[in-house]
């Protein structure tokens, strides 16, 4: 075995070679930890997509109205970054969407977490809110848009209200799950150490629920990001979703594609950021 050459670190990172541990395994199929990262193939697939895009548009196989050329997209990105879109800077379009999501998630969490805690700890709150939560939960937030437009019009408040509602139910359920996840021996230990009910709540139940709450925040971020784009598609003059919708009306397919890519990138960035925050803020997750 030792006569075999050790694979280089790069090859292992790219997933093109087994790491030294996996190489010793005789059973690899079915062992999830023996599946390599495959990053090398990821690079290949992304490059292949870009080359296909470039070839297909440069050779004019596709009408630019359906799918823009790669060079046209790059030109347009430069222009958007410099001049903005419809007199509003590209960053402002992005920021207003992100701002709406953050506001929605924050308001949803501020109401949802205490409510979820109440439902997890107190039978009266559980009884009152459980039917409502269970009824509204399966309704996609987008189905509420018409009603919210009727109530609040299409201004900023209406959008943030919708997003807060979307994150509210996610946060209620997450907080309640967090309360339910507390091991009773931890609560007993705290009481035996002389803690009051309030101290048990703040020093045991709350920190114990943080991992679940954070998972809820992450889910809420994802759902709200999807919802804000859809809400902006329906009614807005600013924001990344509205940019796509307006560009479509002028057959600016390149802007539509750019908008879609930006939505994907930001959604991805939010997820990565939340995971990093989680590792930093809740390092004890899953280690109770």
């Amino acid at each position: 075995m030792s006569s075999q050459q050790q694979p280089s670190g790069w090859m292992v990172w790219l997933g093109l070679a087994d790491n030294s541990f996996t190489r010793q395994k005789t059973v690899k199929f079915g062992d999830a930890s023996a599946v390599n990262s495959g990053r090398g193939y990821g690079v290949i697939s992304v490059l292949a997509f870009i080359i296909l895009w470039w070839v297909a548009t440069a050779a004019e196989w596709i009408n630019p109205i359906y799918w823009p050329g790669l060079d046209a997209v790059f030109d347009r990105v430069g222009k958007l970054a410099n001049e903005g879109f419809r007199n509003i800077a590209l960053w402002d379009h992005i920021w207003i969407s992100v701002y709406r999501v953050l506001s929605g998630v924050v308001y949803g969490a501020l109401i949802g977490i205490p409510l979820g805690f109440a439902m997890g700890l107190w039978s009266v709150a559980k009884g009152i809110f459980d039917p409502i939560v269970e009824f509204i939960r399966p309704i996609p937030p987008l189905a509420l848009i018409p009603l919210i437009i009727l109530w609040f019009g299409i201004d900023e408040f209406a959008k943030i209200f919708l997003l807060a509602l979307a994150s509210l139910f996610i946060m209620i359920i997450a907080a309640r799950a967090g309360v339910n996840s507390v091991r009773v021996s931890k609560v007993h230990a705290a009481y035996s150490l002389g803690a009051s009910k309030l101290q048990v709540l703040l020093r045991v139940i709350l920190p114990n629920a943080l991992p679940e709450i954070f998972t809820g925040l992450r889910t809420a971020m994802g759902v709200c990001w999807g919802t804000v784009v859809a809400a902006e598609l329906v009614a807005a003059d600013r924001g990344i979703g509205s940019m796509i919708m307006i560009a479509k009306n002028f057959l600016n397919t390149d802007i539509v594609v750019i908008g879609i890519v930006i939505i994907g990138l930001i959604g991805f960035a939010i997820e990565i950021l939340m995971r990093m925050l989680e590792r930093k803020l809740i390092p004890w997750r899953g280690k109770g």
Binding site: A189, Y191, S192, G194
Partner: peptide
């Protein structure tokens, strides 16, 4: 009639506050 600080408890693993 209830838990109190004059009776200390030691549980099986998992009762520490991992945070």
């Amino acid at each position: 009639t209830g838990p109190g600080a004059e009776r200390g408890m030691v549980f099986q693993q998992g009762a520490l506050f991992e945070w």
